[in-house]
Lab assay of single mutants.
Amino acid sequence: MAAGGDHGSPDSYRSPLASRYASPEMCFVFSDRYKFRTWRQLWLWLAEAEQTLGLPITDEQIQEMKSNLENIDFKMAAEEEKRLRHDVMAHVHTFGHCCPKAAGIIHLGATSCYVGDNTDLIILRNALDLLLPKLARVISRLADFAKERASLPTLGFTHFQPAQLTTVGKRCCLWIQDLCMDLQNLKRVRDDLRFRGVKGTTGTQASFLQLFEGDDHKVEQLDKMVTEKAGFKRAFIITGQTYTRKVDIEVLSVLASLGASVHKICTDIRLLANLKEMEEPFEKQQIGSSAMPYKRNPMRSERCCSLARHLMTLVMDPLQTASVQWFERTLDDSANRRICLAEAFLTADTILNTLQNISEGLVVYPKVIERRIRQELPFMATENIIMAMVKAGGSRQDCHEKIRVLSQQAASVVKQEGGDNDLIERIQVDAYFSPIHSQLDHLLDPSSFTGRASQQVQRFLEEEVYPLLKPYESVMKVKAELCL
């Protein structure tokens, strides 16, 4: 049975990233139509530049190519590739079939990587351009969430054990800070992308030097003109047959890092959902379990974690691919890159769409948070109580021993009897502590235990987050809708 299948058929496997999760716009960027249309555009740009620099290419040939950029006979191309065992030459023939007058000058002087690699770089750039505003929107939604809850005390956790208090907004800023680093890295790697350009079979530009009869300047002009037509500021000066596969490492490393950030955020949300302090959106008709109707599973956060793990592992592909590119190139890269580049971007696209949807509907339960604080705060307040007693004339050592005994009794009630923490009640009825009984409410005010959390939130948002989001103001209103 021949390899390949009808990918629109229910009898043929289709990647869930495309069929179930990723956005239509990201799927289109990695589609065959987008790819092969870009090949034709690159052939047109090459012909236009070659004509401008004096090669015998007519206006009629150029116009014929322009008129057929979208006229792609995919069936013919597939048949040609089956016959020739070469995808680029299959599309040269297919393009030439609908451009008979231009057929002889299509791909003039070029090698397969002229269309293959340059198209990949265009796709990487455009895919990054799709991700950047999506990530900015996630940051914006979380920034709104953090600002609104900047002063809401909550129990902090280290080692997932109760620690000092923080605020809900401050905790959210930990998430935002990681995503801001990801946004900066995505922008950097996007701006650092260079075009492969017009380089020939081993990167020496020998074929173009021959076409222009040894004119170095025209060869350099050709490279520059096509690079500018493709919208790049610069091209690699040095290439082998391909652009260095280190570029793929750079791009997928940034995406993998984004995956790590999203995994951490969504894990926190899942843990908070278990504590009943916070939940992701839950639709009115949504079913959490087929057997347990009360369940409210954090399905979206779980999906993000599941896909983020996949995204983090994909960076190993370009690392290994770059390491086995012998001399000017081997074909070890080809099949692998067809999979890992598309999957990385479709996965990143999915987790950003999902995280935006989550961040637009996060639900906080202040009463649950308050109750958990009441359970733990008495123990945390013991040092403040000791200091207040010393100020009232008591002995630190005597007070410490009193607190120690009462704390152990209260802990026994919590752990052995399943009761509430009654340390404060014990202190309130103990005559030894009568000098500070009137101060206990103040000493137990949760806001006095959150330090500068709310001020940190305000400063972080104003100095770091809002300036970073400013270039994306025009796209901030787009909502994230999930079908599944």
Score class of each variant (00 low, 15 high):
Gly393Trp: 06
Met181Arg: 05
Ala392Thr: 03
Gln458Tyr: 06
Glu360Lys: 11
Gly116Ser: 09
Ser207Val: 01
Gln375Tyr: 13
Arg374Met: 15
Lys170Tyr: 06
Phe433Asp: 12
Ser434Gln: 10
Thr239Met: 01
Lys229Ala: 12
Val324Met: 05
Ile72Asp: 08
Gln375Met: 15
His263Ser: 12
Ala230Val: 06
His310Trp: 11
Ser9Met: 13
Asp6Val: 13
Glu481Arg: 11
Gln63Val: 05
Glu70Thr: 14
Asn68Ala: 13
His442Lys: 01
Ala322His: 11
Glu401Asp: 15
Asp59Leu: 05
Leu311Glu: 08
Leu255Arg: 02
Glu228Pro: 15
Phe74Arg: 05
Leu482Cys: 00
Leu311Trp: 10
Arg374Asn: 15
Ser261Gly: 13
Asp215Glu: 06
Gln408Asp: 11
Gly451Trp: 03
Ser438Arg: 03
Glu280Asp: 09
Lys134Gly: 06
Lys224Ser: 01
Glu213Val: 02
His437Gln: 01
Phe157Ile: 14
Gln356Trp: 08
Asp248Met: 06
Gln397Asn: 09
Lys229Trp: 00
Gln456Thr: 05
Trp43Gly: 06
Val168Lys: 01
Ala102Tyr: 03
Met292Lys: 07
Leu121Pro: 05
Lys233Pro: 15
Gly203Cys: 05
Cys340Leu: 03
Arg452Ser: 12
Gln184Ser: 12
Val254Phe: 11
Gln51Asn: 14
Pro366Ile: 15
Leu124His: 00
Val198Ala: 03
His97Thr: 02
Leu128Ile: 02
Ala18Val: 02
Pro56Gln: 12
Met89Asn: 02
Pro471Ala: 10
Ala342Trp: 06
Asp59Trp: 03
Gln286Pro: 04
Tyr432Cys: 14
Leu252Glu: 08
Ser474Lys: 15
Ala47Tyr: 04
Arg396Ile: 04
Phe282Cys: 07
Glu148Pro: 07
Asp420Arg: 12
Arg270Ala: 01
Cys180Ala: 01
Ile62Phe: 07
Lys75Val: 02
Arg83His: 08
Asp398Arg: 02
Ser447Pro: 02
Tyr243Glu: 15
Gly200Trp: 07
Glu79Gln: 07
Thr267Phe: 04
Leu440Met: 10
Gln205Val: 00
Met65Leu: 00
Gln455Pro: 14
Arg452Val: 06
Val219Tyr: 14
Ala348Lys: 01
Ala381His: 00
Arg371Glu: 01
Leu272Tyr: 12
Ala348Ile: 04
Trp45Leu: 04
Glu279Gln: 03
Gln439Pro: 04
Glu64His: 03
Lys75Gly: 00
Gly203Lys: 15
Val168Tyr: 11
Ala410Gln: 15
Gln205Thr: 12
Asn274Ile: 03
Leu135Met: 13
Ala163Gly: 07
Ala392Val: 15
Val247Glu: 07
Phe28Asp: 10
Lys187Cys: 09
Glu462Arg: 05
Glu464Phe: 07
Cys340Trp: 07
Glu302Trp: 02
Trp45Asp: 08
Ala90Arg: 04
Asn421Thr: 05
Thr350Gln: 03
Leu108Ala: 06
Thr354Trp: 02
Ala411Gly: 14
Gly361Ser: 14
Ala235Asp: 02
Ile57Glu: 01
Met278Trp: 04
Thr111Tyr: 08
Ser334Asp: 05
Met476Arg: 12
Arg234Gly: 07
Leu355Trp: 14
Leu377Val: 09
Ile358Val: 04
Leu84Val: 10
Gln221Glu: 13
Arg374Phe: 01
Ala47Ser: 08
Leu69Ser: 05
Gln409Lys: 02
Met89Gly: 04
Lys199Pro: 02
Ser434Thr: 13
Tyr243Phe: 14
Leu193Lys: 10
Ala47Pro: 13
Ile339Arg: 04
Val429Thr: 14
Leu209Thr: 04
Leu121Val: 08
Leu484Phe: 14
Thr347Tyr: 07
Ile265Arg: 13
Ile369Cys: 09
Arg309Gln: 12
Ala410Pro: 01
Arg137Asn: 13
Leu183Phe: 09
Pro153Arg: 01
Gln455Glu: 12
Lys147Cys: 03
Cys266Glu: 12
Thr321His: 12
Ile105Ala: 00
Lys134Cys: 05
Val465Ala: 13
Phe433Val: 07
Phe433Cys: 14
Ser359Asp: 00
Gly200Asn: 01
Gln428Arg: 04
Glu401Arg: 05
Leu142Ile: 04
Ala235Gly: 05
Arg20Val: 11
Asp87Pro: 10
Leu128Trp: 03
Arg14Thr: 13
Met26Gln: 06
Ser253Trp: 00
Gln286Asp: 06
Pro56Val: 11
His400Thr: 07
Leu155Gln: 02
Val465Gly: 03
Ile105Asp: 08
Asp191Thr: 14
Val405Met: 14
His400Ala: 10
Phe28Gly: 03
Gly394Glu: 14
His97Gly: 02
Asp129Val: 06
Ser438His: 07
Phe157Arg: 07
Arg194Thr: 04
Val92Thr: 00
Thr321Ile: 10
Arg137Pro: 13
Leu179Gly: 02
Glu343Val: 05
Ile72Cys: 03
Arg141Gly: 09
Ser9Gln: 05
Met380Leu: 09
Glu376Cys: 11
Asp317Met: 09
Lys224Thr: 13
Thr158Pro: 10
Phe379His: 15
Thr382Ala: 11
Cys340Tyr: 15
Leu275Lys: 03
Asp87Lys: 04
His217Asn: 13
Thr119Gly: 00
Ile436Trp: 10
Gln455Arg: 13
Met76Thr: 00
Phe145Gln: 10
Leu193Tyr: 04
Leu423His: 12
Asp192Met: 10
Leu124Lys: 10
Leu128Tyr: 08
Leu53Tyr: 04
Lys233Thr: 01
Thr244Tyr: 13
Phe236Met: 07
Lys170Ala: 02
Tyr34Val: 04
Gln409His: 04
Gly169Asn: 01
Lys264Tyr: 00
Lys367Thr: 14
Leu69Trp: 02
Leu135Tyr: 00
Asn357Tyr: 15
His107Arg: 03
Ala127Arg: 02
Lys479Leu: 14
Leu469Asn: 12
Gln356Ala: 09
Thr321Asp: 04
Thr354Lys: 05
Ala90Glu: 03
Pro298Glu: 01
Asp332Trp: 15
Met278Pro: 06
Phe28Thr: 10
Gln221Asp: 13
Ala90Leu: 01
Thr119Val: 08
Arg338Val: 01
Ala235Arg: 06
Phe282Ser: 13
Ile237Asn: 14
Leu209Asp: 15
Gly203Pro: 00
Glu81Gln: 09
Arg149Ser: 03
Ala410Cys: 15
Thr38Ala: 03
Ile339Gly: 08
Ser412Pro: 06
Glu280Phe: 01
Ile57Cys: 10
Pro471Trp: 10
Arg194Leu: 04
Leu193Asp: 08
Lys415Ser: 13
Asn68Phe: 01
Asp182Cys: 02
Leu155Gly: 02
Asp117Phe: 05
Thr313Tyr: 14
Ser67Gln: 00
Met181Cys: 06
Ser31Asp: 09
Ser12Pro: 00
Val413Glu: 15
Ile139Gly: 04
Thr166Gly: 01
Gly8Lys: 14
Val364Thr: 08
Thr242Ser: 15
Glu220Gly: 10
Cys266Ala: 04
His263Ile: 14
Ser253Val: 03
Thr382Phe: 15
Leu132His: 09
